[in-house]
């Protein structure tokens, strides 16, 4: 055992000195980042969140001269990845690319939340938003939202809408629609938007669906589905011909799926500012903006303060919807 112990100290000594030096430099915020930065994506690879995170990571790696690494931590509707970041060291070297779903709907619907979104995170900036689209099977006679509401009301308990998962923005868009229009559509949950669209296109039981614009866009353009309206407050630059649900008669109806970057709470303000500045700069490049709009994603940037307020107000809105529609995830 003595040999072992000797070896340990022989190895350890030089590194203790080295790391002591490193620890001193790490304290200065203007040197941030001092080591590779992890951007956690709380969803599996693919999907808008992942693509956006990889896009930003590639840009920040160049502009901040440190490796930005995307790591997927899927699980529990995005709560798992959030939890990891909430408990990480608040030094700006672990960030999370989160969404309206796990930041605002989960707190309103999950019985056991592992994190307190408002207390555990420091918002950096919103990055992009995606409108949801109300799309119907072409066999549905309705050509606009008013006709659609009348059609649903004429067939009580007979209309089903597909969702890509319970308690995400597409599902909640539908529940909010039910409340606002006084309809009684029943949600049918699928694992992801692919199988849901498959059944909607084939007319297998479900007649309508709220889904993120990028995934329904090609189907509406090809005529295999009919788009009725977008859920956002404003028309989308990608499909300006689609009216909003708000202007179609349901005043005040506004839902978007947004994506944004958060750091753990207590991250130094200087680090947040630096990240905010760099992300805004990289996402404002016209080339990037154009590409994102083409796939149905609108780059939307704001300040940390605006972003924080938005998260808080949306949580309140979804709490009310979840209570009325009796949605509770255990």
């Amino acid at each position: 055992m003595r040999v072992l112990r000797l070896c340990l100290f022989a190895v350890a000594a030089p590194f203790v000195v080295m790391t002591a030096g490193l620890a001193v430099t790490a304290a200065l915020a203007q040197d941030y980042p001092t080591k590779p930065v992890k951007i956690i994506v709380p969803y599996p690879p693919a999907g808008t969140t992942d693509i956006l995170a990889r896009l930003i990571a590639a840009k920040l790696t160049v502009s901040l001269k440190q490796q930005f690494i995307v790591e997927n931590k899927p699980g529990a509707g995005g709560n798992l990845g959030n939890e990891v970041v909430a408990h990480a060291a608040p030094d700006g070297h672990t960030l999370v690319m989160s969404t309206a779903g796990n930041m605002t709907i989960n707190p309103a619907t999950y019985a056991n939340m592992p994190v307190d979104v408002l207390k555990d995170f420091a918002p950096i900036t919103m990055v992009a938003q995606v409108s949801n689209v109300l799309a119907v099977h072409p066999g549905v006679p309705a050509k606009n939202v008013a006709e659609f509401i009348a059609w649903v009301k004429s067939r009580p308990k007979q209309v089903f809408f597909a969702t890509s998962s319970p308690a995400n923005t597409p599902h909640m868009s539908g529940e909010l629609f039910n409340i606002a229009a006084g309809t009684d559509m029943t949600p049918v949950h699928y694992k992801g938007s692919g199988p849901a669209l498959q059944d909607l296109v084939a007319g297998q039981g479900v007649q309508a669906m709220f889904d993120n614009m990028p995934s329904v866009l090609p189907l509406i353009q090809a005529g295999t589905l009919r788009g009725l309206a977008v859920t956002a407050a404003k028309r989308s630059p990608t499909m300006p011909e689609l009216p909003t649900i708000d202007e179609s008669g349901l005043k005040g109806y506004a839902v978007v799926s947004w994506f944004g970057l958060f750091a753990p709470a207590k991250t130094p303000a200087a680090v947040i500012d630096k990240l905010h500045k760099e992300v805004v700069a990289s996402m404002s490049e016209p080339e990037t903006t154009k590409k994102l709009v083409e796939i149905g994603t609108e780059p939307v940037l704001n300040t940390p303060e605006e972003f924080g307020k938005r998260v808080a107000s949306e949580i309140e809105m979804w709490r009310a919807v979840a209570k009325k529609a009796n949605i509770r995830i255990e």
Partner: peptide
């Protein structure tokens, strides 16, 4: 023994992300 070597070697500031509290 292996653990001790590594813990001493990976003191503060060398890319530690702790899994849980």
């Amino acid at each position: 023994g292996l653990g001790i070597v590594c813990i001493i070697v990976f003191v503060d500031g060398l890319g530690l992300t702790m899994k849980s509290v």
